[in-house]
Simulated scan of single mutants.
Amino acid sequence: MTSPSIHASAAPKPVGAYPHARRVGELLFLSGIGPRDPATDAIPGNEMFADGRVRKYDIVAQAHAVFANVRTVLEASGARWEDLVDVTVYLTDMARDFKAYNAVWAEHFPDAASAPCRTTLGITALPTPIAIELKCVARIKE
């Protein structure tokens, strides 16, 4: 019962050879989604040095952008925001960014009782100069 891969034309292109999502029965598995702008590929809130290294970033801007990108992939897959059941969050600086990220999470999921399950991990790097990535699972009711 695995569906073909799902590519959301309004979402940022994946940075590798993988789909945005794949449905298996009632479950929808999203590949890691970052905050890149779908139209320009720019990373919201990033300020770069001339050599391409990140000088400064804004975790709040990136968190809002990553949620928007997740919503875009969900909708392209026939799911809704409310269908999310599990989210894994990857932060490149847990000590600096967790509190601000948690505040953005609360804006998007104001009722903790109906929010998806969540695991947040601090990691050293992501494949592009982003500070956050989400891995999500949703349940699509038939």
Rank of each mutant, 00 (worst) to 15 (best):
R139C: 14
D37C: 12
E82W: 08
H20M: 08
E75V: 15
P12M: 01
A112S: 09
P127G: 04
Y101P: 03
S77N: 06
G16D: 11
A76D: 05
Y90M: 12
K141A: 08
A76Q: 11
A39Y: 15
E82L: 11
R96S: 09
F29Y: 09
R53Y: 09
D111V: 10
L84D: 12
S114L: 06
C136S: 09
G16H: 08
V137T: 12
P35I: 04
N102A: 14
Q62C: 11
D86H: 11
A61S: 09
A68L: 07
L28P: 00
G34V: 04
H108Y: 15
G122P: 00
A63Q: 00
P127M: 01
R55A: 11
I132D: 00
R80P: 10
A68H: 04
A68M: 04
G45W: 05
A11K: 04
K141H: 12
I123F: 05
H64K: 09
W105Y: 05
T92F: 01
E142G: 14
V137F: 01
F49D: 02
P116I: 10
H20S: 14
V15A: 09
H64I: 04
K13A: 15
D86A: 11
V89S: 07
P116R: 00
V15S: 06
C117E: 13
G78M: 08
C136G: 03
A112N: 06
V60H: 02
I43T: 05
K141M: 13
M1S: 13
A115Y: 00
V70I: 14
A39M: 15
I130H: 02
H20N: 12
A131K: 06
I140Q: 02
I43D: 10
D97R: 00
T72N: 11
R71T: 10
A50Y: 10
